[in-house]
Computed example of a mutant assay.
Amino acid sequence: MTTPTGRLLALGLELPPVPAPQASYVPAVRDGDWVWTAGQLPLVAGKLTETGLVGAEVSPERAAGLARICALNALAAAAEAAGGLDRIRRIVKVVGFVASAPGFTGQPAVINGASDLIGQVFGTAGRHARSAVGVAALPLGSPVELELVAVVEPGEG
């Protein structure tokens, strides 16, 4: 059986370093067999890849790609708290925030970028409950932000 790490590598991806927090929080918290991530932005090498409102400055298709980057960052934070990506048993919940232009209602399609990646990496264990929420603005002007909740292998990470 292929592991999440193996599936990630097969996609030509690897977990990035966990982005440094942008304020007074930690990237992820583990309590028992659960991990909650903080909101993750589409940071690459510590820099925000794009800014703007989805449906105005940022296309929904581009935003879906940014949501995928957010998911990769969230998985990195969860994996760090769990003691490795392969210690994550299941992704339970994803909450995606989309900085939306007035009248934009395509938030679910944008957050599919994240959900699809999680499904590719975890298979059926990546099927999760989800919220896709439109907001007026996000930190640093980011078009998207993502957080997740995961169940991890028992024991210390």
Rank of each mutant, 00 (worst) to 15 (best):
T49A: 08
A82R: 05
T49C: 05
F97N: 13
V44T: 08
Q40S: 07
V94P: 03
V35R: 03
A56P: 02
G157H: 07
A38V: 00
E14A: 15
A64E: 02
T37Y: 00
A63L: 03
K47P: 00
G96A: 10
P16N: 11
A74K: 07
D31T: 13
V35A: 04
P16V: 10
A76L: 09
G6D: 15
D31L: 13
A56T: 02
V151L: 14
V26H: 05
S24F: 11
G126M: 10
G6S: 06
V144W: 08
V18H: 04
L11N: 08
R127C: 14
T5E: 13
A77P: 08
P154M: 03
R68N: 02
A101E: 05
P21A: 07
A99Q: 11
V44D: 06
G32P: 01
A129R: 15
S59N: 03
L43S: 00
R68I: 00
I118S: 15
P102C: 11
V35G: 02
G119F: 14
G134P: 11
A77W: 09
V35L: 00
P108V: 12
G103R: 11
I118M: 14
P60I: 03
L117D: 08
V92G: 01
E80C: 01
G103D: 11
A78Q: 03
M1D: 09
L138D: 03
L75D: 07
D31M: 04
S100H: 07
G46M: 03
G134S: 13
G155D: 07
E147L: 15
P154S: 12
L140T: 06
S131Q: 14
A132Q: 08
A71F: 07
V149T: 15
A136P: 04
A63Q: 03
L72G: 09
T5R: 13
A114P: 06
V26S: 09
H128C: 15
P60Q: 05
L66G: 04
G39W: 02
R7W: 04
G39R: 05
A77Q: 07
Q107Y: 04
K47F: 03
E80Q: 12
E156S: 14
G32T: 03
D86E: 11
R62G: 02
L75P: 05
Q107L: 02
V54A: 01
P143F: 07
D33M: 06
I91E: 09
